[in-house]
Structure formats: structure tokens, C-alpha cells
Amino acid sequence: MNLLTELLIITIFGGIVSLDTTACFQIMISQPLVSCTLVGWAFGYTELGLLMGILMQTPWLLEMPIGGAKNSEGNLGSLVAAGLAIHFVNNSITLTNIAIVFAVVWGLVVSWIGWKFVESMRRSNVKLSYLADKAAEKINLSRISWLHLIGTVYAFWIGAIVTFVSFLLGTLLYSRLVAYVPDFFDVPFGYAKFGLMALGVGAMISMFLNRRNLIYFVGGVVISLIVAIVF
């Protein structure tokens, strides 16, 4: 698959992820487990997309979109990371584990930049409310609807633009840096996957484990250990 096609696909995905994260539907296709797998499928490497989704899903659960909480755009960051990792491997720029590590680091930058854009969008959406006030005075119902739906268009374009630029920069500039990493680093870099899995488990334990439900956690461990040993 050429870069232009990849860029087109991931840009559309970026817009959809941005919409689903907050603006509309919220059916969770924006979650890393889903979006990374979809990118993997579209780029022709579903397994790596799914692995990226598994690695990125649980750590980001720590961030909850409660009220006006200022959270990073982990969904966008994970999407770009999955796209980049697959691009690096598919184009033989580097080996899988090195690709994952560099893509995740780039994804963190994207999630931070993405949040800055979303924050500015939420500020500029205030103007939509003021314009809606004026439309209400004139009893212009369709204008109120359109003003509200402009927010959807903003959200789509912000997601799409952030994804487009970050994926393009990632493939053109960042891949040169990645290509310098010698192949023998692939084995030690593999530990990063286990580190991310551990962070995910740590996040879940810190969120849900207390004295009262420790027994359920232990029960889950024991039962699944028995299943793992037997099967």
C-alpha cells in the first residue's frame, strides 16, 4: 500500500475517532482496541493493529472523560501509533518491537498535541452558544441546529488534520530516525510490550482493588491459572 492511500485511510479514521471520542455516538469505535485493529485491517496487518490495541487500551482507561476534565487525546495518539508501527514494519523500515516502541512514543506526542487542538475547539464552541442565543431571539430553529452541528464538523476536521499531519511527519521524518536503530535492539525492545501490559494491569488494580474485593481478584487469578494449566 502506498503512503498516499495510507494517509487517506488514517485521516478518515482520525476524523471518525475524534467524532466518536466526544462529539457524537460514542459507541467506542474510538477506543484503541477497536480503532487500532481497524487500522491494522485497512493497512493489511490486522495482527499488529490488534496487538497495538491490546497494549494501548488498558493504560488509557485511567483517563476518564468526566465533566470538563482535561484529558489527553489518547485515542488519536493510539490510532497514529498503530498506523505508524504497521507502516514501519510493512515497509521494512525496522523490526516489529522497535517499530512498536517508536510508534508509541510518537503516539504520546500526538495525544498531547491532539488535546491542545480539542481544548481550543471547546473554547471556540462557546461562540456557537452566543450565536445560538441570537438565533433564538429571531426564532430561527434551523440556524440553532446548524450551529450545533458545526461542532461535529470541527471535531471531525481537528481529528483528521491532527492525524494527517502527525502521520505524515511520522512517516517522512521520524522513520529516518527509526531506521538508524540496529536490528539487534529488537529483542530488548520487546520488553516494552510487557511493560505496557504491566502498566495496564497496574492501572486496573489501582482503580478497582481494595480490601473488600481483593478476594475476587485472587479468585480471578486462581480460576484463570487453573484454566491456563489445564488447557
Binding site: 485511567l62 504520546l108 525492545f189 516494552a192 511493560g195 505496557l196 502498566l199 492501572a203 488494580i205
Partner: peptide, 28 residues
């Protein structure tokens, strides 16, 4: 790493980006 990450994620003194970054550095 799972055991170490529990207090880190529980206290949440650093952002998730930093947690992930530090995890990657330690792991590598």
C-alpha cells in the same frame, strides 16, 4: 512491573503520557 506500577497509577502524580514513557524507558 505490574507490582511497581500499582502505586504509580494509584497516586497519579504524573500524567499517563509520562507513565507510558517511563515504562518504555525502564523496559528497554
Amino acid at each position: 512491573m505490574s507490582a511497581v506500577s500499582i502505586p504509580v497509577t494509584f497516586k497519579r502524580r504524573i500524567t499517563i503520557e509520562f507513565m507510558i514513557l517511563i515504562t518504555l524507558i525502564i523496559s528497554i
